Each structure stands twice: as structure tokens, then as C-alpha cells.
Amino acid sequence: MKKNTFPTIAKIIFLIVLFATPICILAQEKPLPKAKTGQFWEHVQFGGGFGLALGNEYTDITIAPTAIYNFNDHFAFGTGLQYSNLKQKNYYSSNVYGGNLIGLYSPIEEIQFSVELEEVNVNNKYTDLGGNYKRSFWNTGLFVGGGYQEGGITIGARLNLLFDKNKDIYGSAFMPFVRVFF
């Protein structure tokens, strides 16, 4: 039986409208200057994350490049990719890949708020359950977060509003983060 996805879609649309409306209203305060030829790349920043965890017969590698466009000193919007590979010898392996959209708002230089929509494909393989068991699925996350920023580094936390402990790839709806842009 197929689960009714309308309530989930309605929640996503409601949250996007809820967070996008103040951004649109505040963006009307001061008109943006018209871009000159070649000026586009002066507003683009690249960054993302890299993770590596090694242990006794355990490996976790994550690569997550991101690019954002700074509309002004307060608003930025961007996109990113994500790939993770996790292995526990003779027990479990997982490949996760996908992308995200991110909106950033900094009311003052030291504070950054974010809204992030993430869609990833998860491919898990369990080898310690009396044979090989595979499970593949798509996972959607809608994160709201905030943090302290200094230069191109932001340290903070985010909350997955679509978290479902029975389906989600993350162990908790609450996640700390370090975001770096150059």
C-alpha cells in the first residue's frame, strides 16, 4: 500500500514559503546594484565539508562540496553535492550520494541562519544478518539552523524538520555542523 505523501509535500511547501517570505520582504529594502560583466564570479564562494573517521575495521569518508552566490552582505543561496562511504568490516557498508539547496541569512556579521533542502540516495548492505541484505532508498531532509560565523567559517547546529527515526539515515534530528567557504 502506498503511503499518502500529500501531508509531507504540504509541510515542505509551507516551510519554504514561511522562510522565503521574510527573505523576499527584506530583500526589497535596498535594491541590488546591476551586475557588470564578469562581476558574477566576485559574488561566488566555494567550500563545503570533508570528513574522515578511521577505527578498528571501520572507515567513514564524506565529501560535500558547495557553492553559494552572495546577493549582498546578508543573503546567499547555493547548491551542493554529497558523497559518503561507510564500512564496518564483515558487518555493514553504505554509499550515500545526492545534492542540496541552501539559503543563508546573516542579520549581523557574526550570526548566520540557514535553510537547507537535502535529497540523498542511500544504498546499505548488511553482511552479518545470515547472508547479504540490501536496502536502497531516497531520503529527504529539510534543515533549519543557525550558528556563529567568523570569516568564512560557521559553527552551529541544524534541525531536520522531516526527521523520521524509522526511515532517516541520521541518528537524530539535531545535528551540529562546521561550514567553510573561501
Rank of each mutant, 00 (worst) to 15 (best):
T8M: 15
I9Q: 12
I9S: 12
F14V: 15
I16Y: 11
A20I: 03
C24A: 15
I25T: 06
I25G: 04
I25H: 00
A27W: 06
E29K: 15
E29T: 12
P31Q: 09
L32P: 02
K34Y: 08
K36L: 04
Q39N: 04
F40P: 00
E42W: 02
V44R: 00
Q45P: 06
Q45H: 14
G47Q: 00
F50C: 06
F50Y: 13
G51H: 10
G51T: 09
L54T: 07
L54R: 00
T62M: 12
T62R: 13
P65W: 01
A67L: 08
N70Q: 13
N70H: 12
N72E: 06
H74L: 06
F75M: 07
Q82R: 15
S84N: 15
L86T: 12
L86D: 09
Q88M: 09
K89E: 06
K89R: 14
N90W: 04
N95K: 10
N95W: 02
V96D: 03
V96W: 02
G99T: 00
L101F: 14
I102L: 10
L104K: 10
P107N: 05
I108V: 11
E109S: 11
E110C: 09
I111D: 02
I111V: 06
Q112N: 14
F113N: 08
F113Y: 14
